[in-house]
Design a protein around this nucleic acid. Structure first.
Lengths: 174, 174
DNA sequence: ATTTGACAGTTCTATTTTAGAACTGTAGGT
DNA sequence: ACCTACAGTTCTAAAATAGAACTGTCAAAT
């Protein structure tokens, strides 16, 4: 499976990964959410090679996640700002940060805190069900094919470890 | 910046990306959440090369995201199941899937639907504030240094495109 | 008794990506 | 005239990934 094929898979996750699923892209987006907008800003904050940075920015622009807008003429200079599509990545970023805060911090604690302007408090992001508002966990979710499915078998979210099963887990195209 | 350095950055996002921030790892985890547990299952579902699959599974086990447990003796066989740390990745997975559902589906609609067992309905995941319960958006969040920070400057989440600023966005170590 | 197939890897080479550094080109300041 | 800021582009070397074949155990089939 190549990068291009990923974006054509009948799976929203595969498609999304095809767009943002590499190390640098995610870090570039982190910078975007931290208000970095310019080439040099990204480069010096991340230590990414200029070559890759240029390529990733182009890709993000192509994907409609960033917009490249001029901020001065002669020499022409642009900044990269998040589109709505890009801003919609926020829950992904927050989910990633929150997992890291929970499982990857050292003794010193969290590097960053997040304050919710509306209520004024430092918070954690919580993922809830759009229908009933209850927090979600993997075990309470049942996955089933939607209209865009391509012969995907019905499966449930995993439970805790069970003993030996003879189940054959083999199905979707290679 | 190499993979190893990533995990030592004073940023929960960088650390998390160091663990799960590559194409295949994320797809392997998708399979885990879809109940795949065995080597052949992952391999045939994803089309990943066996070499990489073996390596990624080892890494996930080392990181405590999967546990490798025997399901038969002679020949010794193991399955890979999500630990609690792994199950906690669920919000990340859901956030990724939801963004894809919103921005990457074709005419046919979503490949997969998610049903919440508690309320019985197909739902979307929504990220809310742990303190006030309101849905979160990037603009309403203010980021500031926590105890584990290392000279990270204070920054806010980005607003919509503004006009030319002379701001220098240059700060964190390269 | 020998062959075949399931399973879970490992090993090899070829290709693709990424790292690292230097170079291009406009323009402002000194 | 020279230096710096900025936003890239162009190289070569190193690392990661793809693709295919190989190893080894055991059960079932012939």
């Amino acid at each position: 499976m190549k990068w291009k094929e990923l974006e054509e898979e009948p799976c929203s996750m595969a498609r999304t990964i095809g767009v943002i699923g590499d190390r640098w892209t995610l870090l570039i987006l982190r910078e975007c959410f931290l208000r970095t907008r310019r080439f040099e800003g990204f480069q010096s904050a991340l230590g990414i090679t200029r070559h890759l940075l240029a390529e990733r920015l182009k890709k993000l622009v192509r994907q409609g996640i960033l917009r490249r807008i001029p901020y001065q003429e002669s020499p022409k200079r642009h900044e990269y700002i998040l589109t709505q599509k890009g801003l919609d990545l926020y829950p992904i970023m927050m989910a990633i940060v929150h997992w890291g805060d929970t499982h990857m911090v050292d003794e010193r604690g969290r590097p960053l805190l997040h304050q919710h302007r509306k209520c004024g408090k430092d918070f954690d992001p919580v993922m809830v069900c759009s229908e009933c508002g209850e927090p979600l966990s993997a075990k309470e979710v049942h996955t089933h094919p939607g209209p865009g499915a391509r012969s995907l078998p019905e499966k449930s979210a995993p439970a805790a470890a069970s003993e030996t099963r003879k189940t054959k887990t083999r199905s979707r195209a290679a």
